[in-house]
Design a protein around this nucleic acid. Sequence first.
DNA 1: AGATTAAATTGACCACGGTCACTTTCATAA
DNA 2: TTATGAAAGTGACCGTGGTCAATTTAATCT
Lengths: 195, 195
Amino acid sequence: MTKTVTKPIQKRALATRDKLLTAAKDLISKESFEALRVEDVVRAAGVAKGTFFAHFKDKDALMEQIIGARMAELIAETAAAATPKDIPEMVELLLPLIHFMTSERYVFDVIVRHSGAAAISDIGPIATQFDEQIAIFARWAQKAPYRPDIAPELVGEGISAFFIQAIALNFCALNSRQALESRLTSYLDAWLCPK
Amino acid sequence: MTKTVTKPIQKRALATRDKLLTAAKDLISKESFEALRVEDVVRAAGVAKGTFFAHFKDKDALMEQIIGARMAELIAETAAAATPKDIPEMVELLLPLIHFMTSERYVFDVIVRHSGAAAISDIGPIATQFDEQIAIFARWAQKAPYRPDIAPELVGEGISAFFIQAIALNFCALNSRQALESRLTSYLDAWLCPK
DNA sequence: AGATTAAATTGACCACGGTCACTTTCATAA
DNA sequence: TTATGAAAGTGACCGTGGTCAATTTAATCT
């Protein structure tokens, strides 16, 4: 009978992970998400390349952490604000988040790729934020109340779907931010206030 | 004053492009979209690597062609069918397309990445198919008529948004196809038949 | 203290998408 | 027929994400 396996996470490992995250955020702020190179991150963090992949499954996982964390901040601010009293106000509350999500094509791609929520296992920071978002939308909808005919959760999912669609259309077209806002407003109006 | 530049596309080039596409489709059918390697394509087509990139901007562009073409077939079949008389029938008509779009995570990612429509220039095969899809949805909605309060185009965009959302949720969760169908049905019911 | 073992880290190495200076082929002009 | 120039094609080379056998470090047992 062998001894019980001990495997406490060493402080050293946490520190290394932190160095990697800090270095990455720093490089991103100087350049962009798109331009981030793993080699630059490990050089800045002063560790070997293999160490990076011991802490993050792949480059995408690092991106998910950083982008998810930023989304969490923005969503927390949105949630803290007073419930919007109409749709234009709702759109305005979403602007900071929209601004971040559209700041780079690459960022949006990462977000979409990880946006699927409702997973039991394997749920990452971005999916978590989408859940959170949907819950906030649902709460907003309940206050008004918009669409009393359907479940609040469903109202929230719809808002989320239109939110994504409005942003996606923004990228592949020659549309300005203004177009995005007005498109999102029409979507939400049609979704929340059917005549 | 120099002579007018002549630049007809040679038959040779068309043949090469065709060889590349055929080889790629063949390899995909044997393996998967995900597993396709450019090196394998050029080997099978009997051309050099550089030739590949003279015909396709990047690997993604090849994927877009092939996936877009397959979507076009499926959408044409859908369009040819009789207008669905209710939402379950609508969902059923969409099943072949859903099946293809969910056949591989990779395929769905490529589709989403290129789904933005409405671009004047730079509009690729997948974006074209989305436009087509939205137009079909709009026509369906007009026949019934669902949502007479809003523009048919908007109805179509909404269907498209929910379509994507339903599929996206399917990937990051432990959801079966059945869940996808019922989710899509609730979405469409809420979107098209507000009480 | 020394032995033991798993966690943490290392860096040479690989896989694969993409580039580009150069060569070959083709169509037209002289 | 030959000369000319652009289109088509080539393949050695590069950048970058990711792997893994080997090494170092830290915690625990005797």
